[in-house]
Design a protein around this nucleic acid. Structure first.
Ligand SMILES: [Zn+2]
Ligand SMILES: [Zn+2]
Ligand SMILES: [Zn+2]
Ligand SMILES: [Zn+2]
Lengths: 154, 154
DNA sequence: AACATTTTCGTTATAATATAACACTATTGT
DNA sequence: ACAATAGTGTTATATTATAACGAAAATGTT
């Protein structure tokens, strides 16, 4: 939770964003989907699918098998409510699901905090590369590993 | 091989680059390592570890188990002779192992060709984000999925 | 050459991540 | 009430990756 003062606010915002996004997309935020999204938002650290399975088991007594979790994760990915961190096989909440955008993250190797990075110059630069090379961009991920400001001090 | 006229030249260059890089780093390019690197350079498409195991079996009659291949892949990664495409769990040859650089790729979803992208403006832009946010960058990957020029025509 | 040291490779077992296939239940629209 | 669709449960299995340990090869030193 390194970078937020009131993490409950992050969670609340995430859920209300999710409700809006689902309404917009005309899909349903079922209890399971909402519960998983809340678990993902428990921290600002990417979580693996099997971490989430364990968390679900603890929280709700229900033992949910991998296919169900992966289905739900894919739903959240498709609606744009979460991102996948490919270098970690892990998932993290999107801080702005209102508009589709590439997945750019700064990930601290010390505290594991992943910070989404909405940077238009960067986006334009990538887009420019596409134009230059005649490549029609469909999807993109940038994952930057390193030390966040906090962890450099330690 | 989409973007190259003479792919044998790509392979030859890769091997001589590898010899140089290993000399420079004072490490050995053993037969196994060289063989694996050549297999990776068979095409401009990222290959999975288990693809490579199959290819090794076909080429050399030797049946090499996963740990050996992963060890060798990690060696090649560490020396900077190959890159890992995280979104595909796959590996591809580096087009310029002479200097360490981030892993930026354009990957065609149709023909699977992955083109390494040495773009300084992009690199500076990412570096700038690091400076702005006080994040000390250690490693980075950009993976752009889409359609290459060739595949758009089809 | 003989030996110790280090590096590389082989082998077995297993961990971690992800999906296929099919059945059942809940929701929605008529 | 019914049919159609969407969501979830369940079993089995595929795919990707590593731990642990021992044998072999290369390297450096007497
Ligand atoms: Zn927070
Ligand atoms: Zn986002
Ligand atoms: Zn080529
Ligand atoms: Zn490279």
């Amino acid at each position: 939770m390194s970078q937020c003062k009131n993490h409950q606010h992050c969670i609340d915002t995430a859920i209300s964003n999710a409700l809006l996004a689902c309404q917009e997309a005309n899909v349903r935020l079922t209890p399971l989907r909402e519960q998983l999204l809340k678990l993902i938002w428990k921290s600002h650290q990417p979580l693996g699918a099997y971490d989430l399975i364990e968390m679900l088991a603890e929280v709700s007594e229900r033992c949910i098998a991998p296919p169900t979790v992966y289905r739900t994760l894919n739903f959240l990915l498709n609606v744009g409510l979460i991102h996948r961190i490919n270098s970690l096989n892990a998932f993290i909440g999107c801080t702005d699901p209102s508009t589709r955008h590439p997945s750019y993250f700064l990930i601290c190797t010390e505290c594991q905090t992943a910070t989404e990075c909405h940077n238009d110059s960067l986006r334009q630069q990538v887009s420019h590369i596409g134009t230059q090379t005649g490549f029609r961009i469909q999807q993109q991920w940038l994952e930057v590993l390193g030390l966040c400001q906090n962890c450099q001090k330690l």
